[in-house]
Design a protein around this nucleic acid. Structure first.
Lengths: 108, 108
DNA sequence: GAGAAATACATTGTACCACGAGGCATAAGA
DNA sequence: TCTTATGCCTCGTGGTACAATGTATTTCTC
């Protein structure tokens, strides 16, 4: 990513789930979608994305299925209801965390 | 901290420098100050803080000096001009990063 | 039609970093 | 006296983003 590796941590699952909230997508397309939405300010490598997708699937936050299209097989990911709840809680955690940081930064 | 370890990453140096911007403090007090300012929503362990202070000093973002007070020796840290510049850039990076995340979350 | 670039999946090894657990010592309060 | 708070520090662990690498297909360019 453009940002320090450490800042990015903790936001990757959030980003992936947020993109999948809109529509089912396959891995490669998720990377492109994150770049598109962030106007190329964020870009998640595939070496980062695929392990995340597998982890999310293992926890039943997403489901995968293969789909043939344009004579090409792609592995699509679909966010589950559990995943939607998780996404919501990740967003809330992010908001609360940012507020806490702001308290320290803008104290007094 | 109350928050997931990963969210916290990338914000620790920012927090420490932000606290030192106001006044010189020693390690133990920095921990307490972060708790105070965040109303106990953030709490940095000493095992986290001290390595950070040493790293910040190594990069000339802070300077340390020993001071005797109340019959007790404490190692105070002072933010340098270089440290102030670094703090400013960390704040800017944080703002930009949050905006980028928001773009992905609130797309379309 | 040949070669390059994009598409698409994935694994592995590395480096970094927050944190808990410990260690040591002194001062204050119960 | 004993516990708690203060105050410094180190080390081992686990988690995680990422680069590097591998494989295969399709599309674009010359």
């Amino acid at each position: 990513m453009r940002y320090s590796k450490e800042l990015v941590k903790g936001s990757t699952h959030l980003l992936v789930l947020a993109v999948l909230e809109t529509e089912d997508l396959y891995g490669y397309k998720i990377c492109r979608e994150i770049e598109l939405r962030s106007q190329n300010e964020l870009s998640m490598g595939e070496g980062t994305l695929y392990p995340i997708l597998h982890a999310l699937e293992k926890e039943d936050y997403v489901e995968s299925y293969w789909r043939e299209c344009d004579g090409r097989s792609r592995k699509y990911y679909h966010i589950t209801r559990k995943g939607l709840r998780h996404l919501k809680s990740l967003k809330e955690e992010r908001n609360a965390f940012n507020k806490s940081i702001d308290k320290v930064l803008n104290f007094g």
